[in-house]
Amino acid sequence: MKVSVRNIRIIVLAVLAFSVLALSPAIAGAVSFVPTKPIEFICFFSPGGGSGIFAETVGSIMEKEKIVPVSMPRIYKPGGGSAVGMAYLSEKKGNPYFLGSTANPIILTPLKVTLSGRKTITHRDFTKITILAFDEMAVVVKYDSPYKNLKELIAAAKAKSKSVKFGGTAVGGTDSLLVASLAKAAGVEFNFIAFQGGGEVNAALLGGHIDAMSANPTEMLPQIEGKTMRMLAIAAEKRLAGFKDLPTMKEMGYNVIFNTHRGIMAPAGIPAEAVAYYENAFKKLSETDAFKKYIADNNMTPTYMNSVQAAKYMNDFADYAAGLLRDLGIAKK
């Protein structure tokens, strides 16, 4: 069964030529907006995680490489799975001196609320600036697991429904949606068990309480090198340079592409000139050696989407995720 996350990315790339041509005058520098005071760069999560590292890396490079002529202090607004930070940023409507770092939760957290019939702030209430990278995800098992590859794991799930226990954080979050995508593609049912945090998931796997988990490969590197865990497959378009021996799910026969995007958004209603300025600035960022090193060190997939493309990607991903959430029973079908 073909999974549509891959189609989302193909469609977005298909409109690249039109979008670039439409915005080329601004990208060439024909903009009137230039920041003259510090730009608050808001991270919706606590320092130290993937989103925090992304925000610190981007902000530091923008300052050190003088891509922007002002400072970009990183402001942390964690809470509510991104809801606190999104509420803060939404209050700055029309103000181009505020930016936020984006990842899947800014789409998924509000989506679970709106699918239940309630209103909340969503990603659609902001100006999307860019998407700069994709953080890939892998299926991980204990090192001495009886499952030597993904096909064996799937075979066990087919032999007895919900016999294979997957662990992750929060039903409806990225972990559970990857598992749901794989289950849908393979035609099986897994038993997904939610934990409070990644540390609990790791402990459950090592303790033999679950059979598998989903995780970012770089985050699992200490366990992989220490031979306490193994990766079975990556949910990426192609193999990662840092893990050349790790097959993709596509190679194993399951057409699943699922990852976490890393991008930038701004409050609604900022001037078009500011959007063009930031598009150009983050395009320059993506071409720096420092950002390329960050991508390589973290085994991420680089990309560059302008405002139009980023908005389309996020909207399409939200539509796709809504279907998976319904499959998980989080929203009514």
Rank of each mutant, 00 (worst) to 15 (best):
V179M: 09
F291Y: 15
A138K: 13
N306W: 10
K64N: 11
H209L: 14
E152V: 01
G198S: 10
P38E: 04
L115W: 01
I42F: 12
V139C: 03
M72S: 05
V141N: 02
Y76M: 10
S32W: 05
V275F: 08
F54S: 06
K64W: 04
N7F: 01
R124H: 11
A185C: 11
G208I: 09
F44S: 06
P69R: 07
N255R: 06
V70M: 06
G94V: 03
S60A: 15
I193G: 00
I107K: 11
A17C: 02
A235S: 15
E200W: 02
I210V: 12
S32K: 14
F134R: 15
E251L: 07
M220W: 10
R9C: 10
T260R: 01
G168E: 00
I295R: 07
F243V: 08
F18K: 03
N95G: 02
P35N: 09
L99T: 11
N202H: 14
A55N: 05
A272R: 07
G79V: 12
T122E: 07
A87N: 11
A180S: 15
A185K: 04
A55D: 11
P302N: 09
P78D: 05
K244H: 11
N299P: 06
D316E: 07
N315Q: 06
N216M: 12
A28P: 00
A156T: 04
T120M: 00
K184T: 06
L132T: 07
D319I: 07
S19M: 08
N299S: 15
S145F: 05
A204L: 09
R326F: 04
L153T: 02
G50T: 03
Y278F: 15
M229W: 03
P267G: 05
K93Q: 10
T303R: 02
V70C: 01
A204D: 00
A233Q: 06
R262C: 14
S24F: 10
M249F: 10
A138G: 06
I264M: 08
K158H: 15
G198Q: 10
T301G: 02
Q223P: 01
I193E: 03
I193P: 00
N202M: 13
N191V: 00
M213C: 09
V15M: 15
T303K: 02
Y143S: 08
G242F: 04
F195R: 14
V141M: 05
G50Q: 03
N259F: 10
L21S: 09
M220I: 00
A26S: 13
A22T: 10
A180T: 07
K292G: 03
G85P: 11
T169M: 13
N95M: 01
P267C: 04
E251R: 02
A235V: 01
